[in-house]
């Protein structure tokens, strides 16, 4: 008799526990507008989407409002890069006072072979390059992944002289 009672108890408990699970999914089903966790990505790219600042998306060379960057073409980043994603092409120019000077001509960045390891940014003595958290980088042709980071007509930002610093 006790075993029969246990059998019935087992069946009733089974139905109760199944009903608990069913009620949970039913609650999700009817309150989907509140509990939904989907990021509707292409629709929310201007509104609710957020990517953390520390996300490594691509290397950029920031320019200020005068179209000046901080890269001195020292090629330390190119040396630091483990898979040759960076090509620094420099040129010789003559300054006003007759000195010859090596400046940046093209800062070529191969995003297709970059592993986003951050070593170029660590190596840079001028803090000229930065990592940006952009993520919409896909293109239809891999040749389009080769960027020239310095803008046309941009030049090296002059360091403030000692006099300017004092004043």
């Amino acid at each position: 008799m006790k075993s029969l009672f246990n059998y019935i108890k087992e069946v009733v408990y089974a139905f109760v526990s199944l009903a608990k699970g069913l009620l949970l999914t039913l609650r999700y089903f009817v309150t989907i507008r509140k509990v939904n966790i989907t990021e509707e990505y292409p629709n929310n790219r201007t509104t609710t989407i957020s990517v953390k600042e520390r996300f490594y998306g691509e290397v950029v060379l920031p320019h200020d409002e005068n179209n000046e960057h901080k890269c001195t073409a020292c090629t330390l980043c190119q040396i630091a890069c483990p898979n040759n994603s960076i090509q620094i092409i420099s040129k010789q120019i003559e300054t006003e006072d007759g000195k010859k000077k090596r400046v940046l001509d093209k800062w070529v960045y191969h995003l297709d072979s970059c592993t986003l390891c951050y070593q170029c940014i660590d190596a840079c003595p001028q803090d000229a390059i930065e990592m940006k958290n952009s993520f919409e980088l896909s293109v239809y042709d891999r040749t389009k992944l080769i960027y020239q980071l310095n803008r046309p007509g941009s030049k090296l930002k002059e360091k403030p002289t000692v006099k300017e610093q004092q004043s």
């Binding site: 999914t25 999700y28 989907i32 939904n36 989907t38 509707e40």
Partner: peptide, 13 residues
Amino acid sequence: KVAGFMQLRWGPN
């Protein structure tokens, strides 16, 4: 759609 709603997502849209 039911599968999506019960798994807290939208299903095909």
